[in-house]
Simulated assay, not measured.
Amino acid sequence: MENYIELLKLILPELIVEHFDLVSTKIEQEKMHLFFEEKNTPPKEFNNRQLVSKGFLNEITIQDFPLRGKLVYLYIKRRRWTDKESQAIIQRDWNIIAQGTRVTQEFADFLKEIMNTIKINYDSILNYFDNRSTNASAESFNAKIKAFRNQFRGVRKVDFFLFRLTKLFA
């Protein structure tokens, strides 16, 4: 069972693995649905009170990293407790989703990183679509140089090697 938990920690957000039980799964062609319920362990800050579990709050749906080509949806039921003395309803405020989204914080950070990569390489990406220009010719030339160098099992004199390259490929 411990190996199962450690594996889940690699795949799912650690907060969910530690504080929620996986109660059911449903796998469709392109989607994986994982259903979680919060464990019946009251918040530590209320240890001195007598709390009674009173069911769950409304289920929330969160999209997480895709796994094996399938979209992953986490359905989470958060538990609520009632204080026997004051009849106050107590619940945890988990910070599972990124603010203003329906995706996990880790997934949102990953998407932001991809967005930044696209911003940095924007001109190079557009260059391909505008001019159909790639670095394939440079890669091809590098492959020819490697093959030429391997043919002679290395290079002893760099000047002579460069001279031969210019005569053959220029």
Rank of each mutant, 00 (worst) to 15 (best):
L165N: 10
F110H: 15
N131S: 03
A88W: 04
T134K: 08
F65G: 02
T25F: 00
G100I: 01
S53P: 14
K167P: 00
M1H: 12
G100A: 03
D159I: 08
S24D: 15
F56C: 07
K167E: 11
L12M: 14
P13V: 05
F161K: 08
I11R: 09
Q29A: 11
F36N: 05
M115P: 01
L74W: 01
E45C: 03
W94I: 03
N48W: 03
G55W: 00
K9G: 06
G154S: 11
E113L: 11
F35H: 13
K39S: 07
A170W: 10
I62T: 07
V52T: 10
N116Y: 09
R156I: 13
K146T: 12
L51H: 04
F20S: 06
Q50P: 00
W81P: 00
N3I: 12
F46R: 11
N40I: 01
F110G: 04
T104K: 03
S86H: 09
L7P: 01
A98K: 12
D130C: 04
K44N: 14
N40W: 03
E106N: 15
A88Q: 15
D93P: 00
Q91F: 03
F56N: 12
R102N: 05
N142A: 12
F56W: 07
M115L: 11
V158N: 12
